[in-house]
């Protein structure tokens, strides 16, 4: 049960991070003095969701995925799994996803610094930097959500007894 809640929680806060990033992107396209505070708050919110996704997903990855789900996909005679039809779900999608994720964290932290230290309404090039960072977070968030689904399908296709 805890396993399922962790993975659902991870996907949910990850989706919220992506949705908040989309909202932030729109605010940045229309940046003016009136929405500076909202852009700052949204930058904080994006960070909160990404960090929550990191902690919840990391807990699942270390304590559940790495000890069971990975072997369901790869196959394990000790655990009695023949291996998933989609072995690439781990070999490519999990392995890439877990390492791409760190980029999202540092990008979000840099975004926060720019939101609170720069006058991005007047400074067009700083606003462009923030916009590009948030665009990376949106595209990356969508891609990683999809890859998470492929991982889940990899596990499902591996639930075949030897």
């Amino acid at each position: 049960m805890a396993n399922e809640l962790l993975i659902l929680g991870h996907a949910t806060v990850g989706s919220l991070a992506t949705l908040t990033s989309v909202w932030l992107l729109v605010e940045l396209f229309h940046a003016k003095d009136g929405n500076v505070q909202r852009i700052k708050y949204l930058s904080v919110l994006v960070n909160i969701f990404i960090w929550l996704s990191y902690i919840v997903g990391g807990w699942y990855y270390v304590y559940d995925y790495s000890t069971l789900d990975k072997y369901i996909i790869k196959g394990s005679t000790d655990l009695g799994f023949s291996g998933s039809l989609w072995k690439f779900a781990h070999a490519f999608f999990t392995e890439s996803k877990e390492h791409f994720f760190f980029l999202g964290i540092v990008m979000a932290l840099y975004l926060l610094l720019l939101a609170y230290r720069s006058s991005f309404v007047a400074d067009k090039s700083t606003r462009q930097t923030m916009t590009v960072l948030v665009a990376f977070l949106v595209v990356g968030g969508l891609v990683l959500e999809g890859w998470g689904a492929i991982m889940a399908m990899g596990v499902r296709l591996g639930m075949v007894p030897l």
Partner: peptide, 13 residues
């Protein structure tokens, strides 16, 4: 937490 991914994340951040 003796896991390479945890160490990797800590190191990067």
């Amino acid at each position: 937490i003796s896991h390479h991914w945890v160490g990797h994340g800590i190191l990067m951040i």
